[in-house]
Design a binder for these strands. Structure first.
Lengths: 207, 207
DNA sequence: CATCATAGCGAACGAAGGTTCAAAGTTCGA
DNA sequence: TCGAACTTTGAACCTTCGTTCGCTATGATG
């Protein structure tokens, strides 16, 4: 594997290419599965020879790690900001879920890979960081939810919310009827108990 | 691969062994992933030599198919019965979701495999039947939900419900605080709008 | 232009693992 | 107890990749 170029003029191209590889890998892994996707296939998709991939990544598993990092890190960062903000709890939660759903649908492939390769990520030292990110994010959602929804069983609501949002990656289509925002608001309404917490309004409102 | 024994006395043992292989396979696939689990490993777990597995199954993929079948068929059958029954719509839905959650937690490994290998199942002719079962089941849930919850956006509620129930396989532990029944009832409460008969429609502009 | 970091090539290597098969072992049924 | 049906063995086969590496091409830099 080659290092990132020292020469400034080449860095940009390198970064772009590298990013493109991650993108194509996520796409292929999501569609065919990690193991069913060969490095040769991936290289061909990029218009490269097999060996060239190793200029950008140490190996196949490094690619998977890059996909997971690119999925979790921006999400965690943005979520932290939202919760640090001063705002009514229910508004914070709505903002958080909107952000989250938007992230999931914008990175559907990353998300699907992340879910499909759960068993890989859940064991092995090299995945500790990814696991930590996921845990930290879930903790944030739990906090946001508890504050906005003090009564009832917040634990089940949290698990349900995790389930529905993550599942969104499997059915969302850009040309579908619902916008990410509508979806997010719908989810919030469900977990807060419609009528009660939905006071903020379902965004777009009536159809 | 050998055929099912003709001699009655041997059938029972054959069926039991075959079933045990499916069980162990589901367990291993769920924990390590389909591709990361070798036939040799599987054979060793069963106390058999590698080749013996091929006595019971045509190959590794046949095993995966068996896992999916055993997951979907009883579920679909039971769900059909529930909805054929005469009962108030909301009661039917509750029964259906209880049954479903119970099935998911009782077959967690099958379920995790089913989810992880989604990309395999979603393409290829040999998986048509499994896909059809899943679709049929989702259709049943959709019907049950629509009847119990006629106003509002039933579509998002359905997708949310699918997400939360399926996700249950990933966090449920037998020694946990919640029984499968409590979980199911919690989910139903969420999608029907807890407490009040408040329409839980997302984007329905219900407030 | 000369130099050298960078980018890419693509055949070949090596390990892994699904599958086969002929032979040996075991159990049922008469 | 005998033969046939059934079960199991385990080493060898064969294919499929992930990865390597020596070489070439490119183009920025001075």
């Amino acid at each position: 594997m080659a290092a990132r170029p020292t020469r400034p003029a080449l860095r940009e191209r390198y970064d772009r290419r590298r990013q493109e590889v991650v993108y194509q890998a996520a796409r292929a892994f999501a569609r065919q599965g990690y193991d069913q996707t060969t490095m040769q296939e991936l290289a061909a998709t990029m218009g490269l020879a097999t060996g060239a991939l190793y200029h950008y990544f140490g190996g196949k598993e490094t690619l998977l790690a890059a996909i997971c990092d690119q999925l979790m890190e921006p999400l965690l960062e943005q979520a932290t900001e939202v919760l640090a903000d001063e705002a009514p709890a229910d508004r914070q939660l709505r903002t958080l879920v909107r952000l989250w759903v938007a992230h999931v649908v914008a990175h559907r492939d990353h998300m699907l890979v992340f879910q499909q390769e759960r068993h890989v990520i859940e064991s092995g030292d090299q995945w500790r960081k990814v696991r930590a990110s996921r845990k930290a994010f879930e903790r944030l959602v739990a906090d946001g939810l508890e504050r906005a929804h003090p009564r009832g069983d917040a634990r089940l609501a949290l698990l349900a919310l995790l389930g529905m949002v993550n599942h969104t990656a499997q059915w969302y289509r850009p040309r579908g009827e619902l916008t990410p925002e509508q979806i997010a608001d719908g989810y919030v309404a469900l977990v807060l108990g419609a009528g009660a917490g939905a006071g903020a309004g379902a965004g777009a409102g009536a159809e």
